[in-house]
């Protein structure tokens, strides 16, 4: 169960990319809150606080202009695809007595038995949507994979959720599996040699095209 995080926010007037860019250059991140039929409120938070928000699941208390308070959860965020800087954050207003749906990261615990036999642990599902009260949102869902043998999978039904947390995701969805190593056969080796012969030919064609 995660603790509540308190962040200072300031209301903003300027909307659109011009004002948003000016804010980002001043080391501020544009954010918005919405939910429960209330009008969307545009605000800013400090860039150093924004990283804290992204590594926190659960309630985020927004203290607006030092007085007004909003109880929210992180809904979504945008990052720049190249610089990886945070561009914008959406917060959803919640009530503490109302169930919310949130995405929580899945992490593996333990070393699968199958990896000692040469297998490779593969994470198929990175996050899972859970439903819980806002104060019960876990930071991560831990999955014990130590019992997984070669070619075995851990499904959603095998996950252990903390008290007060559940999911509507289909129980037969695979979360982790242990892939057996592929055995290279003689035919495959021959095919690979064929590819090797084809590759220089392709290069020659490319240089001709240039």
């Amino acid at each position: 169960m995660s603790k509540s995080l308190s962040i200072t926010a300031t209301k903003r007037d300027g909307l659109g990319k011009g004002p948003a860019r000016r804010l980002r250059s001043a080391n501020l991140i544009p954010v918005v809150t919405y939910g429960h039929g209330a009008a969307a409120t545009s605000m800013t938070i400090k860039a150093e606080d924004s990283e804290q928000v992204l590594h926190h699941s659960g309630i985020v208390e927004l203290v607006i202009n030092g007085s007004d308070k909003k109880t929210t959860v992180l809904k979504t965020f945008q990052r720049h695809p190249i610089s990886n800087k945070i561009l914008h954050i959406d917060f959803q207003e919640v009530r503490t007595d109302e169930v919310v749906f949130t995405l929580v990261p899945l992490v593996s615990v333990g070393e699968p038995a199958g990896t000692r036999q040469g297998g490779q642990l593969e994470q198929v599902m990175m996050e899972i949507e859970v439903k819980s009260l806002p104060m019960n949102i876990p930071d991560v869902i831990k999955a014990d994979v130590s019992a997984l043998n070669l070619d075995e999978a851990l499904h959603v039904r095998n996950l252990v959720f903390p008290e007060g947390v559940s999911t509507d995701v289909a129980a037969d969805q695979v979360v982790f599996n242990v892939r057996a190593p592929k055995v290279q056969e003689v035919e495959e080796t021959a095919a690979a040699e064929g590819e090797e012969a084809a590759a220089p030919a392709a290069d020659t064609k490319k240089s001709d095209a240039e």
Binding site: Q120, E122, R179, P181, K182, E188, A192
Partner: peptide, 8 residues
Amino acid sequence: RHMQRRGQ
């Protein structure tokens, strides 16, 4: 080739 047919 470098992955030697392991992984996806």
